[in-house]
């Protein structure tokens, strides 16, 4: 059985009904080029007002392009293991974590060793009950809305009305969250510790520990996929 399927996988599958191709496809490349030109114009205009505006715009365009091209989806990395057992996106996300861990730490250590304040420390945030509630809410939300924050933006660009609606309510939810933030901060967040791993393990130790955790999760992801999907393979 499996041998024949291996052989025939290259050949065409016989289907009785004709493909539902209705009309010749339109070539959308000219419109794509117009959008790219628009991106350049906005980038130049904004950069002349403030270089940072132009830079952020350019980075956004690049992130959007990469996200769409690779269908990179943080939601899928958390969701697919639960649904089908596939962990290919999960492993890609772990790879991204590993690369950025190394590079970020190099930059941070560079500042630190020159006696300068370490940049980006505002992203080392307190761990509290609010982190848990926020994580669970966000996790449920991204699965049912079909996209996380970056994924929702990317799908708006792809023309999904559903994600346009979801983006609008993401904004409303953020506003309500901001309104209640004081309460959460006072009740939980102020009591939560912020842990910067190099403070605990040292610079080298922190990188080693984190890469080890990523490697373990990577291995676990492979085993999980084999367990959930591998049974059918032979």
């Amino acid at each position: 059985m499996s041998e024949t399927s291996q052989v025939s996988s290259a050949s065409s599958i016989r289907r009785s009904s004709a493909s539902s191709r209705r009309k010749p496809k339109k070539n959308q490349i000219p419109y794509g080029i117009l959008v790219v030109l628009f991106m350049v114009v906005v980038g130049v205009v904004q950069a002349r007002r403030d270089p940072m505006l132009g830079f952020y715009w350019m980075m956004g365009c690049i992130f959007g392009f990469i996200l769409q091209k690779s269908r990179f989806c943080f939601t899928a990395s958390m969701r697919d293991p639960c649904i089908t057992g596939s962990t290919s996106v999960t492993r890609a996300v772990l790879t991204a974590f590993a690369i950025t861990t190394l590079m970020f730490t190099a930059i941070k250590y560079g500042y630190h060793s020159m006696g300068l304040p370490i940049p980006g420390m505002s992203y080392v945030t307190p761990i509290s009950f609010a982190t848990a509630v926020g994580g669970i809410l966000f996790g449920i939300g991204m699965v049912i809305a079909g996209g996380c924050a970056s994924g929702t933006l990317m799908r708006v660009g792809e023309g999904f009305i559903m994600q346009m609606l979801s983006l609008f309510f993401f904004v409303i939810g953020s506003l309500v969250g901001a309104a209640h933030f004081g309460w959460w901060k006072e009740k939980f967040i102020v009591h939560g510790p912020s842990v910067f791993l190099p403070d605990v393990f040292g610079w080298v130790g922190a990188v080693v520990v984190q890469l080890f955790i990523i490697a373990c999760l990577y291995k676990a992801a492979i085993l999980w996929e084999e367990k959930k999907m591998g049974g059918n393979e032979e």
């Binding site: 926020g134 809410l137 939300g141 953020s174």
Partner: peptide, 12 residues
């Protein structure tokens, strides 16, 4: 989904 993502993101 959009709403609870927004709310959750502020808490976290």
């Amino acid at each position: 989904g959009g709403f609870i993502m927004g709310y959750g993101a502020r808490l976290a």
